[in-house]
Amino acid sequence: MSPDQDIDSAADRREFMEGVAVGGIGVAFAAALPITATADEPVPPARGPGQPVPVKLNVNGTDHDLKLEPRVTLLDALREGLHLTGSKKGCDHGQCGACTVLVDGRRVNSCLTLAVATVGRKVQTVEGLADGDVLHPLQLAFIKHDAFQCGYCTPGQLCSAAGLLKEGRAKSDDEIREEMSGNICRCGAYPNILVAVREVRQGALKEKP
């Protein structure tokens, strides 16, 4: 199967226009979390601030019950707690965009978001973009147009592009460039990312009645 065919067939799927479908591909890793307070840890100061609290995270359609210190960011909860390492840590200060995920369908920097603040919201990461084994049109277009090299910023680029398409404002090439500027790629894949995003956007537009 060629990547072209993939894109065409996937673009036919209506749910893509809704942003991204959530499937049951998230895997629960609630047990043995390294960032939970566990029995063998040294006894923390009795009543200091910041004791771990129960946190129910909904990630890619699956609920996860964690016990986290309130200071744990969404990014660290995903990577260290749930072993969903698709979301990347590049700067940890909102300066690179590698950690971009969708919260209630809006793209945000998960490194500056507290996990505890996302309780009751729906988090979607790069692991939740594909529908089972069927890749999201953006994923297919990124492969087809070689829109990455080392791949480290790629999950953030993809989630950001998914958010951009949902927002629906960026139309021209310059607008796509501007609206993708929160995601830094040091390998220099920008021209290919532009082509990939443009192609998916145009494919999605064709689908509109």
Partner: peptide, 21 residues
């Protein structure tokens, strides 16, 4: 040709050094 590791990289399955557990 498309990258042999393309699917791994666009799905978040490619594992970098800090991502082993």
């Amino acid at each position: 040709l498309d990258r042999a590791d393309g699917v791994a990289k666009v799905t978040g399955r490619a594992k970098y050094a800090a991502e082993f557990a």
